[in-house]
Structures are given as structure tokens and as C-alpha cells.
Design a protein around this nucleic acid. Structure first.
Lengths: 225, 225
DNA sequence: ATTATAATATGATATTTGTCATGTTTTGAT
DNA sequence: ATCAAAACATGACAAATATCATATTATAAT
């Protein structure tokens, strides 16, 4: 099994603040795992007794709302840590994590991470800074949810996916969400999401092929209100 | 000036994790301040070079949305810290803070707090846990914003205010928000907020006297969808 | 290749929410 | 106490979004 000390992925998250000795210890007790597309990593209410370091693939974090719909709060990608919050907060998971494509992750048991959090202030501070940043992003999302139109939010998601995942050889967004997932990110009915995507298509902002979406006019998408 | 070591307020926030020596040092450089109702404590984009410890009063944290409306993200109350995120993240403020009533706060310079964050893992971990909790709350708010109706969200706010601020001698909510503030918490037009409050009144869930609101039937408010 | 299943698409309509206009009440300064 | 300004309130209408019904197309299993 590969070693944490030599893993470049840790440069992208708080694990980079660990000392060599700490990394060696963690490397010794971590477990590597392949997660298939569609597989549930953990669910709301589960006790998450460790942290996942995402080496490859993408998963969605979602929460079941009182109206029975799933709302997708965040996409977790290569380089991210998954499950820190439940760990730090000593609580069960507030969100469910489901793989959007095949993933490769390392699982680090809770006890190991907590040990480092209690002894290595640099590590703790790095994680604190990460969470401060996440909190800022969350506030921005709250404001967008509250104040922007569904059409605007859907355009924002397309722009976000384009910026963060890029496009494949044919120019289609490199990540494929179902129309239902789009609706669940934006917070609208699936039919509404489909309808607005159709409208974007008619206006020439995007084109589609099956579930794949190609952005044809990023500039105009950004102007949508 | 009163001393941090003897201040009971710190029991309510992360400052409780500081050692006696650290508290004495902080006590020596903190400044106490009275903030009048309506006064701006800091604004979006300001460099916040320290943390406020709220000894009394309430302020709102809000963000200007792209459509020109202010959205209230959070109420900060007695016992809370204000401004940690900008501090930890080394960034300018993402939100504006405005006093909702007369406040009494202590201001602790950034350098002092950062010193403790780098040296006292217990303090850092406590703040990390606080942020993990805030992040969980934020996710819940995002889902509510995306999935619940305006009426439902407004009912939720009334319940929240009742739970967190209680009522005065006459049974009115102990905290008074303007109708515009209600709209800005819920994320709706002021007229819509007013209209729904009127509807609640007609249905006997609440009664009002000027801007004051009295909850008459908490149970039925909780059943609103 | 065929077929069942799920995903996508669209129309018709109901509901929710926003906007603009206008009137009333409350509040705070003098 | 008076008055102007702000906050509150409500009607009429427009726009956005949800819901239900029903095709159509894509996907995956056999």
C-alpha cells in the first residue's frame, strides 16, 4: 500500500500540516478503498468514525429536507477531506455522501486524527482556516439561495462545474450530473431544472447530448439574472 | 476596567479554553466599548483586526446580495464571539455587523488571539469545534432556504426568536426586528413578509402591537408548511 | 438486438412570490 | 404637542415556480 509521506494528495488539504512522524503513524493505520459510482459512503445520522482523504473521484454531500427532497450541499473532489466535521464535532453525520463516479479514498481512523488535533496546533489551525473558508462559502450560498432566481442559480452551477471540473475532449462538462442532481443542487423541482436547461439550449447558451452538457456561451450564462 | 479572568461571559465561547496566564495577557490589551443601536460594527470588505466578545446586546450579520437586498445570515448574541472567521481566514470581512440594540463588547486585537491559536491547541480545537457546529447549522439553513416555503421559513424565524430570546413581561418577543429585517432573514420581499405576518395574525397564530409580535399559538406555528 | 426501466422532455394549470401603487400608522425630532 | 419621515399594511396584478399528466428518449440488463 502507498505511503502518506509520499502521497502528493495531502498537499491539497490540512494533512500537509502534519509532521513526517505523524504521517508515518497515520500511514500505518489508514486503509485504502475503492468506492463505486452510486455507492453510499455514509448517511445522515451515521457515526463517522474517521476521515476520508479523497485520492480520486467525486462525491456529493446531501441532506434530506422536510419536504422529502434531497438537497445537494457540496461536491467533494480529489484532494478534499471528507467527514472532518462530524469528527471534530463529536456528532453523527449531518449529511449523506454518495459517489458520483468511481472513487479512490483513504480512510483514517478518528483516534489518530484527534490525537494530532490535540497535539499539533499547526494542523488544528490549518483545519480551522479551512473551516473558516467553508463557512464563508456557506454564507455566500445561503444568500444566493435566498436572493437569486432558480434560473440564475442553475447558470451559476453550470459555471461552477465548468470552472472546477473543466470539459472533456468533445467540449462537454467533464462531470455528469443527472437532471435530478441539478435540481437538487439548485433547490428546485426536477421539471423546472429540465425546463430551464431546455430554455438555455433554445437560447444557445448550452447544447446537450443525452445527459451531457456543453457550454456554448459562458459569457451569456454569466449575465443571466 | 473589568478583567477577563473574572468575566463569566468567556464561559460561553472558546475563550474558556485559555489558560489563566493567557487571559491575564489578553485582559491587559483588550478594550471595552459601548455600541449604540443601529451602529455599524464592521462592513463587508473591512479588514477586521481583532475579535469582539459580546458582553451584552445583539447584532445582525448580513451580506449585500447581487439584487441589492441585504440578507441577514445570523444573529450574534451575548456570549458569542464576533469576527473570528475574518481573523482566522486572514481575509477581509465577508459580512456586515450592525447592532440591533445597545451593545457592550470587548475588543481583542488580532495579534493576541493569533498568538494563542498558534500555541494553545486546546483553544484552537475549541474554536474548530465551534466552527464545525456553525458549518452544520449553515448547511441546515441552506437546505431550508432551498426547500421550504417563505411562510414556513418565517414561522421558523418566529420560533427561533421565541426559543433564543424569550418574551418580555407582556408576552411579546423579547427581541424586536423590523418587518424589513424579518424579510431579510427569510429572504423575501418586505411586503411578502408583512403579508404573511398579517395572515398569521388572522389565523390567530400571533398578535401584534406596533412592531412587537406575540406568539399566541406556538404549536400551530410549528405545523406550518 | 430486445426490452424493461429510468431519465429526460414538455404541456396545462395551480400556487407562490414579487412588484408597484397607495393608504395608514408609528416613531422620533423639534 | 406637532409634524415629517419612516415603518407598516393591503390591493391589484405580474412573474416565477411547482405540480400533475403524459410523451419521448436513453440506459442497462438479458
Amino acid at each position: 500500500m502507498s505511503k502518506c509521506e509520499q502521497c502528493i494528495i495531502r498537499q491539497f488539504n490540512s494533512l500537509k500540516a502534519l509532521t513526517r512522524e505523524e504521517l508515518v503513524r497515520i500511514s500505518g493505520c489508514k486503509t485504502s478503498r475503492i468506492i463505486k459510482k452510486g455507492e453510499v459512503i455514509f448517511e445522515e445520522g451515521d457515526a463517522v468514525n474517521g476521515v476520508f482523504c479523497v485520492k480520486d473521484g467525486v462525491c456529493k454531500l446531501s441532506k434530506l429536507s422536510s419536504n422529502g427532497k434531497d438537497h445537494i450541499v457540496k461536491l467533494v473532489v480529489k484532494g478534499d477531506l471528507l467527514g472532518q466535521r462530524s469528527l471534530v464535532g463529536e456528532e453523527s453525520a449531518n449529511l449523506s455522501a454518495v459517489a458520483l463516479n468511481d472513487m479512490e479514498v483513504c480512510f483514517i481512523p478518528k483516534s489518530e486524527i484527534m490525537q494530532d488535533l490535540q497535539k499539533n496546533p499547526k494542523f488544528t489551525l490549518d483545519m480551522l482556516q479551512q473551516m473558516a473558508h467553508d463557512l464563508k462559502e456557506s454564507d455566500n450560498v445561503i444568500v444566493d439561495m435566498a436572493q437569486k432566481s432558480v434560473k440564475n442559480r442553475l447558470a451559476d452551477v453550470l459555471i461552477y462545474l465548468n470552472d472546477h471540473f473543466g470539459v472533456d475532449d468533445d467540449g462537454f462538462l467533464a462531470i455528469n450530473l443527472s437532471r435530478e442532481d441539478y435540481a437538487n443542487v439548485v433547490g428546485t423541482a426536477t421539471e423546472s431544472a429540465i425546463r430551464i436547461l431546455s430554455q438555455f439550449k433554445k437560447e444557445g447558451f448550452i447544447s446537450t447530448q443525452g445527459k451531457q452538457i456543453k457550454i456554448e456561451n459562458l459569457h451569456k450564462l454569466k449575465l443571466i439574472e
